[in-house]
């Protein structure tokens, strides 16, 4: 029987593996036919924004680039949404980071804890908070 999983993610892509874990878990749940909702809270709001690539030499060793790239979660987030996942952010935490004006990954919704998150609770079978 299909269930609805809500993931509250508290970490961004770079400080630990939580974002990678949470996005992979969401995709795995969708593979099993479950509905996924994600609330991006705290530093997790960073993965809600489209990446802005720079041109030219990155001035980063290739082995470090190879280490970093798989941890980025923008593409997995977009895939979650393309499969019907519902993803929203805490705009207050975006504001705190000076990124509220930046464009979202396609399909991510502007949100807040009092509105978006509590609405997710109303339709959730399971809530999992991921972050440390």
């Amino acid at each position: 029987m299909s269930k609805t999983l809500t993931i509250m993610l508290l970490s961004g892509a770079a400080e630990n593996e939580d974002a990678e874990f949470a996005t992979r878990l969401a995709l795995a749940a969708q593979d099993k036919g479950h509905k996924v909702q994600m609330y991006l809270f705290g530093n997790a709001v960073n993965i809600s924004k489209k990446e802005t690539p720079i041109e030219g030499d990155l001035h980063i060793q290739q082995r470090l680039v190879d280490h970093i790239e798989p941890t980025k979660s923008f593409d997995r987030l977009a895939e979650i949404i393309s499969r019907g996942g519902d993803v929203s952010t805490c705009h207050t935490n975006e504001h705190a980071r000076g990124i509220e004006f930046r464009e979202y990954v396609e399909g991510v919704k502007w949100g807040d804890v009092g509105g978006s998150f509590t609405k997710y609770l109303m339709t959730s079978d399971v809530l999992l908070s991921v972050g440390h």
């Binding site: 508290l10 530093n43 804890v113 009092g114």
Partner: peptide, 19 residues
């Protein structure tokens, strides 16, 4: 630490919305 604030904000939001 931001997470502490996120915790009380979550509790407040849930409480105010009837949970």
């Amino acid at each position: 630490v931001e997470q502490g604030t996120l915790g009380i904000r979550s509790a407040w939001a849930c409480h105010q919305n009837g949970f």
